[in-house]
């Protein structure tokens, strides 16, 4: 049976109580998916959380209490806290994008300052064969590797005669 809570507008957040669970519908243009994920994650220690898309641009979040049924004051508190967390996560996602350079620079400085340089033993034990990250732009490649790859793809060096059928000369 649909229920509305004081102070929680039905057109923004729809609340339904059913067997101790409730569903909120979230407008994706206001709350991006990454914010919904972040808020949902905060609640998975106290609630069972299920996400669905009832229609385009809407995400439905279903919460049910782990220890007690969500009803009465507990339901209102939970939905209210979820809404606050959602707003906080949406804003955080935005400012994390805006301040990315500062955050990365401070974090990198803090962690490198704390870790210090590796010892010779640590360098010896380091597994260099493991791919550290995807490198689509070839930033981590040596000049030789990059050059060889281009060559293979058809980037012929200037001394080589251009083939009549095209390749890099085109």
């Amino acid at each position: 049976m649909p229920v509305t809570f004081d102070g929680i507008p039905g057109d923004l957040v729809e609340v339904e109580l059913d067997r101790g669970a409730m569903s909120l519908q979230v407008d994706e243009t206001l709350y991006p998916l990454e914010a919904v994920y972040a808020a949902a994650y905060v609640f998975i220690d106290r609630c069972y959380v299920f996400l669905d898309k009832p229609s385009e641009g809407r995400i439905r979040v279903t919460l049910s209490g782990k220890k007690a049924k969500l009803e009465g004051d507990l339901a209102r508190e939970t939905v209210g806290e979820f809404a606050n967390e959602l707003l906080s996560c949406a804003w955080r996602a935005q400012i994390a994008r805006d301040s990315r350079a500062t955050i990365e620079s401070v974090t990198a400085r803090a962690l490198s300052g704390a870790r210090g340089a590796p010892s010779l033993d640590e360098l010896e034990a380091f597994d260099f064969s493991e791919e550290a990250f995807d490198d689509p732009l070839g930033i981590a490649m040596s000049w030789e590797e990059k050059y060889a790859k281009k060559k293979k793809e058809g980037a012929a060096p200037a001394e080589e005669p251009a083939k009549a059928d095209g390749g890099a000369a085109k």
């Binding site: 994920y37 994650y41 998975i44 069972y48 996400l51």
Partner: peptide
């Protein structure tokens, strides 16, 4: 069902969505 859904959601988020 509840635990599995939470687990799948947690793994999805951990994987970056």
């Amino acid at each position: 069902a509840h635990e599995l859904a939470n687990f799948a959601l947690g793994l999805t988020i951990k994987a970056g969505g």
